[in-house]
């Protein structure tokens, strides 16, 4: 099996997490992580931060679209330019 360098491993992380990597890449990637503390640590941090980014929802900002809706619909319904 071809040896992956740490820089190659890190460059594959996004594809691995998004399920876009081939089986061979996944095997080489996880094989490397078993032997390399630094890459394993980086991978865990990256994955956790990525997952938390997905929890930053739009609700964090108390957006109120009503104003905008009213403004735009007024323009549309009055057909003014």
């Amino acid at each position: 099996m071809v040896y992956l360098k740490c820089s190659n491993v890190v460059s594959k992380i996004s594809e691995i997490i998004d399920g876009q990597a081939s089986l061979m890449t996944r095997m080489r990637f996880h094989g490397h992580l078993m032997m390399c503390n630094n890459c394993r640590r980086y991978f865990e941090q990256y994955k956790i931060v990525k997952e938390l980014a997905g929890k930053v929802t739009a609700d964090d900002l108390p957006e109120d679209f009503d104003h905008v809706m009213e403004f735009v619909m007024n323009k549309i319904e009055n057909k003014d330019a």
Partner: peptide, 24 residues
Amino acid sequence: VLDNYFNEAGRWEHDCPGWDGPVP
């Protein structure tokens, strides 16, 4: 940021910074 981590051989220049383990 990715450019700063590795030496010419593609290995970590210094240890990966930050917390360790699956749960910080």
